[in-house]
């Protein structure tokens, strides 16, 4: 048996008294797209944030259980969180490029990680922008502000910015919820292309999107991971009645 890229074991998370994730067990395979679905407040975004310790700074958060990345617990005390977030990057709902040039957005991460050589940076910037399928659209305006780009372009800049630090896992929290259908399709195509190199976990409220882009789907409800399986099975023949009710829009 091959080792999972991420292995979550008996994970419990609390916001103060609130039990936000209840004994979640999940294996995420490398080079697959895993979709997390469920109604608002079910814990799917919380779960995503657990995976790169984004909840660390929130007051009163307690995490129990283990999250193994390549077999190594990311919650062990000596874990370097900056390095962890380099390995596991995140894309958010609203594109959030830095208010600086396209070039500087992409070069930001590599610079922080100590790369100063201009030629090396040029190379990383071009490679990352190409990988995020945005190079053709911005190569003539690399030194202009990224803020002037469209929403869909900005989101791809944010993905390119992640790729520049050579992550292994990409976490995407509703990455297309603020985008129009065409920009959404571009991101979805990009996800398909990126999964050859990366492991991707995406939170989405759009069932069709989960069905289109993911290999595996996990359904969360009130902090429980209720059903987890191959996407084509979940969307044609879910096992749990609650999964069926949710994906067919008959919840409650």
């Amino acid at each position: 048996m091959t080792q999972s890229k991420i292995s979550v074991k008996n994970l419990n998370m609390y916001y103060g008294d609130f039990h936000a994730l209840k004994n979640v067990n999940l294996e995420v395979e490398a080079n697959q797209v895993t979709a997390l679905i469920g109604p608002s407040g079910c814990g799917k975004s919380t779960f995503l944030r657990v995976l790169n310790r984004m909840n660390d700074l929130i007051e009163g958060v307690k995490v129990e259980g283990s999250v193994l990345l390549d077999g190594c617990d990311i919650y062990r005390p000596e874990e370097d969180v900056v390095n962890l977030r380099k390995r596991i990057g995140m894309v958010f709902q609203r594109p959030n490029p830095f208010p600086m040039s396209v070039y500087d957005n992409i070069a930001y991460g590599p610079r922080i990680h100590g790369i100063k050589d201009k030629r090396k940076l040029d190379e990383i910037v071009e490679k990352s922008l190409r990988a995020a399928v945005i190079w053709d659209e911005v190569q003539d305006r690399l030194y202009k502000s990224a803020i002037g780009l469209s929403g869909g372009q900005q989101q791809r800049i944010c993905i390119a910015r992640l790729l520049a630090v050579e992550p292994e896992v990409l976490l995407m929290d509703e990455p297309t919820s603020a985008l129009d259908p065409l920009a959404t399709m571009k991101i979805e195509e990009l996800i398909q292309a990126l999964k050859k190199e990366y492991t991707i976990i995406i939170v989405t409220h759009n069932m069709q999107q989960a069905a289109r882009v993911s290999d595996v789907t996990a359904f969360f409800l009130t902090g429980d991971l209720l059903e987890y399986g191959k996407t084509d099975t979940i969307f044609t023949k879910p096992t749990d009645k609650r999964t069926e009710d949710y994906i067919t829009g008959r919840f409650g």
């Binding site: 969307f235 044609t236 999964t243 069926e244 994906i247």
Partner: peptide, 9 residues
Amino acid sequence: QSPLAKDLR
């Protein structure tokens, strides 16, 4: 209606 699961079936 983008039917799924039993609706789709």
